[in-house]
Design a protein around this nucleic acid. Sequence first.
DNA 1: CGACTTTGACCCGCGC
DNA 2: GCGCGGGTCAAAGTCG
Length: 186
Amino acid sequence: MQMEKYQICLPVSDPSSPSGSPSSLNMANPSIYFHGDNENGVRPESRTQHSDAKHSDPQTSRVSSNSEIRVKPGMRGGDNNEFRKHKYAFQTRSQVDILDDGYRWRKYGQKTVKNSKFPRSYYRCTNNGCNVKKQVQRNSKDEEIVVTTYEGMHTHPIEKCTDNIEDILRQMQTYTPFEIMPGHFL
DNA sequence: CGACTTTGACCCGCGC
DNA sequence: GCGCGGGTCAAAGTCG
């Protein structure tokens, strides 16, 4: 993964809100920000056919003890405000998907998103006890634009300094990022 | 060998 | 109730 200078742009445009109008960006209504692209009905689905075959594979043997362990507060948009903390989104112009922001991230998932050419990647901070997550997705209209969404706040200091972080922070002061309140979450 | 990525399956909320 | 879409899990694979 090579280092690069990042150019941070205006916070996400191009809402494709399922029910909203794709009007211009509205800072007071962040819920319409960022939802992939609304272009046409281009349905990627190349890699995962999203087969809902919930069983049909011998791999289902993994089901094991899911039933009870998987208690998760407010998956998405839930009212579990304690769990959903702050959420910030911003765009960067870069060839690489992952910003080197000084923290260490572990990828825990990737999904193809409807109406978007590019998959969305899910990362979690590797620091013990730090529950910050981020999503990274490339804009299908402008492939150089990477939309990064941070969720939560780090409970630990930054792990390493990079050249990028200076630029990122400096420019983030210029372009105020979103703060998405729990209730507005998609 | 540990840390990380990949990827199919699973879970859940929402709209119809 | 059902299907879709998004988010997460976790086994297996990869890499240093």
